[in-house]
Simulated scan of single mutants.
Amino acid sequence: MTIKDIGPEPQSFDLEKATVANTDYRSVAWSGKYLQLTLMSIPVGEDIGLEAHPETDQFLRLDAGRGRVQMGSAKDRLDFDREVEDGWAVLVPAGTWHNVTNIGDEPLQLYAVYAPVHHAPGRVHATFADAERDEASGGDEPPSWSVQPARQASDQHA
């Protein structure tokens, strides 16, 4: 199942089926003016990478697999540590250092809602390395028509 990001136009689809069917590390499914939906697949033993988004809140929901969520106010102070699985939600406040690690024996399938929009519309990254390269080259920027904070701080990565 492939979802085409049609930008800030009305859209509907079976989100759980799309999330479970997604095999890409990250695939942008819908980009609105104020928020964005991405589908993610994290391979066994891998993670999303320790990061913090200073101006972006995130909502994550797991639709398959088991994970470990770690969050905190600093990259060396991750005092929130929980095991999560299918059906669980994870809420990441802006500026919070966070990581999600696949601790199960199957891909960890989840979706993420970003507010404000965080990635280029329709962008697909097959792997974590692809996502890192795209971000480092400046190719994964929010669209000009999305509403962004007046002062934009850069994401932080460990």
Results as ranks from 00 to 15, higher is better:
Asp105Thr: 11
Asn102Gln: 06
Tyr111Ile: 01
Ile103Val: 15
Tyr114Gly: 04
Val117Ala: 14
Leu108Pro: 01
Val90Trp: 02
Leu91Val: 13
Ala94Thr: 01
Pro116Trp: 01
Ala120Lys: 14
Val100Gly: 06
Pro107Trp: 09
Gln109Ala: 15
Asp105Gln: 07
Asn102Gly: 06
Pro107Phe: 08
Pro93Asp: 05
Ala115Val: 13
Ala94Tyr: 01
Thr101Val: 13
Thr96His: 06
Ala94Phe: 00
Asn99Pro: 00
Ala112Trp: 09
Tyr111Glu: 02
His118Trp: 09
Pro116Arg: 02
Pro93Phe: 05
Pro107Val: 10
Thr101Asn: 08
Glu106Ser: 14
Gly95Val: 08
Leu110Cys: 14
Ile103Gln: 05
Asp105Met: 04
Leu110Thr: 06
Tyr111Trp: 10
Trp88Val: 05
His119Glu: 04
Ala112Met: 14
His119Val: 00
Ala89Phe: 13
Trp88Glu: 05
Val117Pro: 04
Ala115Pro: 03
Thr96Ala: 12
Val100Tyr: 07
Tyr114Asp: 10
Gly104Phe: 10
Val117Tyr: 04
Val92Trp: 00
Gln109Phe: 10
Val113Thr: 14
Ile103Ala: 08
Gly95Met: 06
Trp88Leu: 02
Leu91Ile: 11
Trp88Ala: 15
Gln109Leu: 11
Val100Ile: 15
Asp105Pro: 02
Ala120Met: 12
Val113Met: 14
Val92Glu: 01
Ala89Ile: 09
Ala120Leu: 13
Thr101Ser: 14
His98Gln: 15
Gln109Arg: 15
Ala94Gln: 06
Val100Trp: 07
Pro116Gly: 05
Val92Tyr: 02
His118Leu: 12
Tyr114Cys: 09
Trp88Gly: 01
Leu91Tyr: 14
Val113Gly: 11
Tyr114Leu: 10
Asn99Ile: 10
Ala120Gly: 07
Asp105Leu: 03
Val90Pro: 02
Glu106Phe: 06
Ala112Leu: 15
His118Ser: 10
Val113Glu: 13
Asp105Tyr: 01
Val100Thr: 14
Tyr111Asn: 00
Ala112Phe: 11
His118Cys: 07
Leu110Asp: 07
Asn102Thr: 09
His118Arg: 08
Trp97Asp: 09
Val100Gln: 11
Asn99His: 04
Val90Lys: 01
Thr101Arg: 14
Ala115Tyr: 10
Leu91Thr: 13
Trp88Asp: 13
Gly95Cys: 06
Pro93Val: 01
